[in-house]
């Protein structure tokens, strides 16, 4: 993106502790890159999110990228890009790996979505606390980076091929075969 390009940053619930930091973190990076930014209120309901993003796009057709920070808005961004045939003209990104979001990545409406490894975010701390408890406090919880995965068209296929509770796409306790190589 060239300097001065407009980025629409779409958020469902401004101010909420789990998603507002995603805007706050990206904003200075975009600004430092010389990009123009606008924070768009999507609203908490998916039907409203779609019309909000469409309305905002209608008034800002010079936008270069739609950056959404939750899965509902990711669907809204993808739908807008699809509806107005903006693929290749306006970039889009999502958050989380719900199936409709992944399908939009696969279809090329979203350039990427973020896999924040939410299962690990819950699982690892509990395991660490458990080990802390049973080791008389000798096994101390350590800061753990659960990873930040960018899911793009290049690596989205395995996500769609494996419904798994670890990524929120299934409920069955299915054990899949390990990958042929470890990749991030």
């Amino acid at each position: 993106m060239k300097k001065g390009g407009l980025v629409g940053m779409v958020i469902a619930t401004p101010g909420s502790g789990n998603i507002q930091p995603r805007i706050d973190g990206a904003l200075p990076v975009f600004k430092k890159a010389g990009l123009d930014t606008a924070v768009v209120d999507g609203g908490a309901l998916e039907p409203g999110e779609i019309t909000a993003v469409e309305a905002w796009y209608t008034g800002h057709k010079d936008v270069k990228f739609l950056y959404s920070v939750d899965d509902g808005d990711a669907v809204a961004v993808a739908d807008t890009i699809k509806k107005y045939n903006l693929k290749g003209k306006v970039g889009g990104s999502g958050w989380d790996v719900e199936v409709p979001v992944l399908q939009s990545v696969k279809a090329g409406q979203l350039n990427f979505t973020i896999d924040q490894q939410a299962y690990l975010q819950g699982f690892v701390p509990v395991i660490q606390l458990f080990l802390y408890q049973i080791s008389a406090g000798l096994m101390k919880p350590a800061n753990t980076d659960t990873g930040l995965g960018f899911v793009t068209s290049a690596n989205v296929t395995p996500y769609l091929a494996h419904a798994t509770r670890f990524e929120g796409s299934g409920v069955a306790q299915t054990a899949y075969a390990p990958p042929s190589k470890i990749a991030y």
Partner: peptide
């Protein structure tokens, strides 16, 4: 209208 004219989310 508020989205169209670009009212900030806050």
């Amino acid at each position: 209208g508020f989205n169209l004219i670009g009212v900030n989310a806050n």
